[in-house]
Every structure is written in C-alpha cells, then in structure tokens.
C-alpha cells in the first residue's frame, strides 16, 4: 500500500513537472536560441539549438524524476578518438532518446516515424535535423547522415529499430553501419540498463530505479575497414550484448 502510494506520488509529481517544464522550458529555450541566431551563422544557430535540446533532456531525465530515478553515465572510452561519432545503443524504453542528453556532444538522433508525430517534441526534433529513417530511401538517409557527420554532428541510432519487448537485444538494422563503412567515422557502442520499467513498453507508468549508461570504446575505421555491413553490425551488437551482461551482473568484466 505504501509502495503504491509512493508510486502514484512519484508519477503525479513527475508528469506535472514534465508538462509544466515543457510548456515553459521549450518556448523559453527556443526564444533564446532564435534571438541568438539573428547574430550568428546558421551552423552555430543549429549547434545552440541542439545544445538547448540536450539541456531540456537533462532536466527531464535527471532533475524531474530525482530522487526516485538516478541516472549514472560512465564514459569507458579510453581511446581519446576525435569525433564526430556514430553512437549505437540498445533500446528498451521510451526514455532512451531523453537519456542521450547525457552525451556531451552535438548530436542528432535517427528515429522511427512516430516520434515525429509527438506534439511539440516531434516538431522540435524535425527542426533539429533528426532523421526519420523509415520515411526516406537508404540513399537519401546516407546522404543526410553523411552531411551531418561532415559538419561535425554526431549521430545516435537505436539499430534494433524498436523497443525490446522482453529486454533481450534484438537484431540490428544495418543502415547506419553502411554509412560508417562509407564515411569511416568512428562507431561507439552505448549500453543502457535499468530503464526497462522507466517506463515499460506499453505504459507511461514510471517506476523508481537506477539507470546506467556505459559509453564503450570507439571503434575506429582501421578496425572495421573491409568488413561487410552485416559483419560490422553484428560485431557492434555483440559488444553491446557482452557489456549489458556485465552491467546486469550476468558475467564478469
């Protein structure tokens, strides 16, 4: 009974704050960026806009659900590789796109069709240059992704394409790995655990917990040169699967 009450309070407070912060924060941040953009180049304007989206995301995932939900981000990459990067992450929850705000880089995400249909957030994602991979042929996706990478913008992908229903790692789609092979930009695997129920698939109910995000070492071009897209995507998938098992205590590091 006490736990249920706690859960109701947590969700009520979170969603009230979420709506309140979105209604205030999005217009304010947008107005600030729009005003600054008058005096700076389009490229710098976009950089500021994407940074504002990251700030918004950080508030949503770190501040609003605290202390019920804690987010621990660990950078395990010791390679000191220069960006931009192609980030590939496992996907268990609707909170994953927000969690990407932990990455200290200018990023755009590759999304499915439905996030673009979300009120306000979908519009902002479109403005920020997020890529709806299912609404364009591969050639167009590749061209746009390459253009962003060449501008110095990192790309975040959830290659399973959809949230996992049971927490297991699904098969990967290969589009972004083809872009990696074409462009030679480093690929960084990301592993997220602990968010299976924050919220679980098919519900908006948030449960308390600790979310861990591990950024693994960059896989540079020399390491995957000559691979087929199939081989590269499965190599990255295996790295993510292995790290998730370590994070969940199913195997030793």
């Amino acid at each position: 009974m006490k736990e249920t009450l706690k859960l109701i309070c947590f969700n009520f407070i979170f969603y009230v704050l979420f709506i309140f912060f979105s209604l205030i924060g999005i217009p304010v941040l947008s107005a600030i960026v729009a005003f600054q953009s008058i005096f700076i180049s389009h490229r710098n304007g976009m950089k500021k806009f994407r940074r504002a989206i990251s700030w918004y995301g950080l508030v949503i995932i770190k501040a609003l659900p605290y202390p019920f939900v804690k987010v621990i981000y660990e950078d395990l990459d010791k390679t000191k590789t220069a960006g931009p990067f192609i980030f590939t992450s496992n996907h268990r929850s609707a909170s994953d796109p927000f969690l990407m705000a932990c990455l200290p880089y200018e990023c755009v995400q590759v999304v499915n069709i439905w996030p673009f249909k979300l009120p306000i957030l979908g519009f902002m994602a479109k403005l920020a240059g997020y890529l709806s991979v299912r609404e364009m042929p591969f050639e167009e996706f590749s061209k746009k992704a390459t253009g962003l990478l060449n501008e110095g913008v990192s790309i975040i992908v959830f290659p399973e394409g959809t949230r996992s229903a049971d927490g297991s790692l699904g098969q990967f789609h290969g589009s972004i790995f083809r872009v990696a092979l074409e462009t030679g930009y480093p690929v960084i695997p990301l592993c997220i655990t602990g968010n299976d129920k924050i919220p679980a698939r098919g519900t908006l109910l948030l449960r308390p917990g600790t979310i861990k995000i591990h950024k693994l070492s960059a896989i540079i071009c020399d390491e995957y040169k000559g691979f087929t897209p199939y081989k590269l995507k499965n190599m990255v998938r295996q790295l993510i699967a292995d790290e998730i098992e370590v994070m969940e205590g199913k195997r030793n590091a």
């Binding site: 591969f138 098969q171 990967f172 789609h173 290969g174 589009s175 083809r178 087929t228 897209p229 199939y230 995507k233 499965n234 998938r237």
Partner: peptide, 14 residues
Amino acid sequence: IFQDLGLDSLDIVD
C-alpha cells in the same frame, strides 16, 4: 533469415 540470422532489408538486396 531475419530473426535468427539477423539480415535486414538492405542485406536482402546484397
């Protein structure tokens, strides 16, 4: 070929 072997639509073209 999709669920067990992990091929996607682009792999099918190959």
